[in-house]
Design a protein around this nucleic acid. Structure first.
Length: 514
RNA sequence: GGCCCGUUCGUCUAGGGGUCUAGGACAUCUCCCUUUCACGGAGGAAACACGGGUUCGAUUCCCGUACGGGCUACCA
């Protein structure tokens, strides 16, 4: 039995959409589950749409996600080159196309784009919305079927522009078994004569992916649902080639839909709704426009991959957190949902939160030290592991992303400049004033300034003054941080230290008593 | 318009003839914990698109309708 070989074949027309990443992920998971190979092929047959940097972006994005190709552009392999423009130079596609012509399954067509456009317009005006170049119309067009062999040869020798079209035989039902959809069938009468080789000599997707899949021994072709309508043409090509036995199994994946409204998820949605649609940040080379990326937004790659895997697939158990290895074991196309999946940015954040919670404390502390150094300067005494570890413990459960640590802990580094008015209005009374006048001295009696000891001292003083801790606790927080809510109060106090706490109490009293 | 695919809580989904008084997760609400907030815990509200069949019995099978999506290029 030959080994499973899947491929991801994007065209370098811009940054890789997260839907594309999911397609790559499923193809990768399936290949790895079967100890097979995952191949990255670049489909750059449309010279007009080529975007510089896109190819590098694709490779970097897949690499970041841990979806590492075994073969492909940037990775080498036994089927080089893996870029279709280069494979075209080798004559691969033309060879297959000529074979199809020689066996009567394809023909040369001279009709120009402008002519076709005119015909479509005319048909449209006559109420025919579905004119296509097919078995109904091809005999009234200018092609090697309607021209004599001599005339055709003459035109070609003349350098007249022509394309090679597939000659679809009418009257059959084309059916195949899709890995996610089951049996699907089409009427060949309705399949158009697809262009396989364009006037510029480049193959179209339809021919190119088949030739490459055959040559690269692809066993499973995994792609988006948008390809389903052209699947019958692809199956016919395999049949006409006499290579139906080489045809991979197809899997058409459901599309990713907008979080709200209609249609598939697009670049615009991210900009509009404030979440990334791309794995990595992308700067459009032409417009300079920047699209945000999951990596730059602070998502863990594992969380991103986990989230993506669950958009349209689920394991059938209640487990939601999956490592790549677990995904490889659990994945199956039978469990891919058939309907499009509406993307939910909240759930994406939730996944990241879960991964954040799982992070080892030490790792978080290391990142925190870096953030502190950036904010406070390299030499700041607080930007060290012991302090950062304690601080990380304080903020960890209140954030979705690592980069939020520093912002969540502002009160550890900055004295308040304003004080929560609501709390002040309610709690800054005579008793509180007396209490906080005495508190610094009380705190000075604490020899080991831990959270527990500071709390004890605080409660003692409150008891002495016949106050419930609740009467002055929130005010204490406001004096220290300016805010009515925030990090665990005594945890924060321990980190601030006796001296800083007293200083802030003093500053706060001065400000509020003015 | 034509063709193809789809349709379970707001969202992602489980379930594929009786076990469904339809399960989980996100979001939302309530309560508990807590000085607060968050975390955590407990609980609530919330869905089988509709109409016909088939069947003793349909969320589950079939057919229609509606709705959604995709495709309809010498783009992928």
């Amino acid at each position: 039995m030959t080994s499973v070989r899947t491929r991801f074949a994007p065209s370098p027309t811009g940054p890789l959409h997260m839907g594309g990443v999911r397609t790559a992920l499923y193809a990768y998971l399936f290949a790895k589950q079967h100890n097979g190979q995952f191949i990255l092929r670049i489909e750059d047959t449309d010279q007009n749409r080529y975007v510089p940097g896109a190819e590098e972006y694709i490779i970097e994005a897949l690499t970041w996600c841990g979806i590492i190709p075994d073969e492909g552009v940037g990775f080498g392999g036994p089927h080089m080159p893996y870029r279709q423009s280069e494979r075209k130079e080798k004559g691969y596609y033309r060879q297959y196309a000529d074979h199809l012509i020689n066996t009567g399954h394809a023909y040369i067509a001279f009709d120009s784009t402008a002519e076709l456009e005119a015909i479509r317009k005319e048909a449209e005006a006559a109420g025919n919305h579905n004119w296509q170049y097919d078995n109904h119309s091809r005999l009234s067009m200018t092609n090697s079927l309607t021209l004599s062999a001599e005339e055709t040869a003459k035109r070609m020798a003349n350098g007249d522009a022509y394309v090679i079209r597939l000659k679809v035989e009418p009257g059959t039902t084309v059916s195949f078994t899709d890995m996610v959809r089951g049996d699907v069938s089409f009427d060949s009468n309705l399949v158009d004569d697809k262009v396989m080789i364009k006037a510029d000599g480049m193959p179209t997707y339809h021919l190119a992916h088949i030739v490459d899949d055959i040559m690269m021994e692809i066993t499973h072709a995994i792609r988006g649902e948008e390809w389903l309508p052209s699947a019958p043409a692809h199956i016919l090509i395999y049949q006409y080639l006499g290579l139906a036995d080489k045809m991979p199994q197809y899997a058409h994946l459901p599309l990713l839909l907008k979080p709200e409204g209609n249609g598939k998820l697009s670049k615009r949605d991210g900009d509009r709704l404030g979440f990334p649609v791309f794995p990595l940040e992308w700067k459009d080379p032409a417009s300079g426009e920047i699209s945000s990326g999951y990596r730059e937004k602070g998502y863990y790659k594992d969380a991103f991959v986990n989230m993506l895997a669950f958009l349209g697939w689920n394991p059938g158990t209640e487990q939601e957190i999956f490592s790549m290895d677990e995904l490889i074991k659990a994945f199956s196309f039978e469990r891919v949902h058939k309907a499009g999946a509406r993307f939910d940015p909240d759930k994406a954040k939730w996944f990241n939160e879960q991964y954040l919670r799982q992070q080892p404390e030490e790792l978080l502390a290391e990142k925190f030290v870096l953030q502190m150094k950036q904010k406070l300067g390299n030499d700041d005494a607080r930007a060290t592991m012991p302090f950062a570890t304690a601080a990380a413990r304080l903020v960890k459960d209140r954030i979705y992303f690592e980069h939020e640590m520093i912002g969540m802990s502002t009160c550890l580094f900055e004295s308040p400049t304003t004080y929560d008015e609501k709390v002040v209005a309610k709690r800054w009374n005579d008793k509180a004033k007396t209490f906080f006048a005495a508190l610094p001295a009380q705190l000075n009696t604490v020899s080991d300034f831990t959270a527990e000891n500071a709390k004890l001292a605080f409660e003692q003083l409150a008891a002495q003054q016949e106050l419930k801790p609740g009467d002055v606790l929130q005010m204490f927080r406001v004096l220290l941080s300016g805010q009515g809510s925030g990090l665990d109060l005594f945890g924060m106090i321990a980190l601030l230290g006796n001296e800083e706490v007293n200083k802030r109490i003093g500053a706060g009293r001065a400000a509020l008593n003015k």
